[in-house]
Computed example of a mutant assay.
Amino acid sequence: MMHLLAVDDESINLMIIEESLSEKGFTIVKAKDGEEALAILNQGDHSFYAIILDRLMPKMDGIELLRKIKRSEKWRDIPVIFQTAMSGISDMTEGLDSGAFYYLTKPYSRAVLVTIVQTAVEHYIKLIKAKEDLHKGMGALRHLTKGEFRIKTIRESHELAPLLANACPDPERVLTGIMEILNNAIEHGNLGITYQEKTELHNNDKLMEEIFNRLELPEYKDKFVQVLFDKDGEKITIVIKDQGKGFDWQKYLSLQAMTKNAFKTHGRGIFMARKLSFDDLTYLDNGATAVITILMNQETSDLLTDFQE
């Protein structure tokens, strides 16, 4: 049974959320404001797979609750879907900086709500599995200084990401970002799945099926992603190179692109990876090569807040 926490001071909104998602197999736990939601989280009666959070509420608003959630080691990985009528860039930036991963602008359709929630839950389940792999006797990888790897499939990507993360100072911080860049290299790079194609496939729940199909086609089956790992005394550099044609990576790393895609099921992954997981992320070869930088001394790193706009 998958529980979702819905927080909204309008009972009609809570009713719509429950009616839309209960028929998809989710159990909705409702709270009328941030204080009640925080009390429910502290009780620990349920494991939540996503939180649907209204921004404007009495007692404790959505931003304040979101910040409390993201400061908690217990709850910080739960994807938060922000509901708001405030869709200006400054409002979105505040939400992003506080940890929101998805946005829903009111009023929204039930179909969009279902799609966004299902995407968030899928992301969370993959993250839970990957974090379990972090703790399977790979501590010795902290001593890795150089390495070269080649992967072809999403499964291999999910196997390699925890290994690379374990070789870094803060494995949990970098894990999701590494997974995102590896998946992007396979899906968009080697397999040539475009942004629009991914949107349609995702909306029809056909993405993984298409990935598996393309991996068997002659033009794709021999392609691989090369991953180079290098650690020196100051930083870790991870180079991820696919065999695709590249893409316009700069627009996906800009704040404008992030706010444009904040209401969609995908399109903001590399921005969030750079913001939350790495000290720097850039691309070479017209987007076919990603270069990740992770500083060894995290206390001196101030690059996380220095983004291209």
Rank of each mutant, 00 (worst) to 15 (best):
T27F: 06
Y195C: 03
F247I: 07
I81C: 05
V239I: 12
I238D: 01
A85E: 10
M1G: 12
T176W: 06
M86E: 14
P218R: 06
L144N: 07
T153N: 10
S72F: 02
Q226V: 01
T176N: 14
N203Y: 11
L182Y: 10
Q256A: 08
Q250P: 00
K221M: 13
Y49R: 09
I40F: 01
K24F: 06
E209Q: 10
I81Y: 13
N297R: 08
Y220G: 10
D205P: 00
I12S: 04
E216L: 14
Y252S: 00
D230L: 14
L14S: 02
H135L: 13
Y124F: 14
I81T: 05
M60G: 04
I178T: 03
L134G: 06
D285N: 06
I238Y: 03
E10V: 13
D230N: 13
E94G: 04
D8K: 07
E209S: 12
K106I: 02
K30W: 09
R268Y: 07
K223V: 05
D205I: 00
L96D: 04
I151D: 03
G34T: 03
S22V: 09
T293V: 07
K264V: 12
V7F: 10
F263W: 15
N261W: 08
L14Q: 05
I125M: 11
T153P: 09
I40E: 02
L21K: 15
M57F: 14
C168W: 03
P171L: 02
H46R: 00
A100W: 06
S277G: 01
L53M: 06
E132M: 13
L144M: 15
S109F: 09
I63C: 05
Q256K: 11
I81S: 03
Q243M: 10
S90Y: 15
K129D: 14
G233K: 14
Q118C: 06
R142F: 10
K59M: 06
L56P: 08
K32I: 12
E122V: 00
G25P: 05
R110T: 08
Q118L: 11
Q298G: 00
H158Y: 14
W75D: 11
G95H: 08
N213S: 13
L160F: 12
D280L: 00
D54Y: 05
L21V: 07
N286Y: 05
M60Q: 12
L191W: 07
M2Y: 14
A257L: 08
F101Q: 13
I52Q: 04
L303K: 15
F101W: 13
L304E: 02
K231H: 10
I292G: 03
N297F: 01
L207W: 09
I12P: 00
F149G: 11
L53S: 04
A167Y: 13
K198T: 09
I40N: 00
K129E: 15
N166G: 11
L41F: 04
L104Q: 09
D77C: 01
K146V: 15
T282V: 02
F278L: 12
G233N: 11
I17M: 07
E200A: 07
K235M: 09
G99S: 04
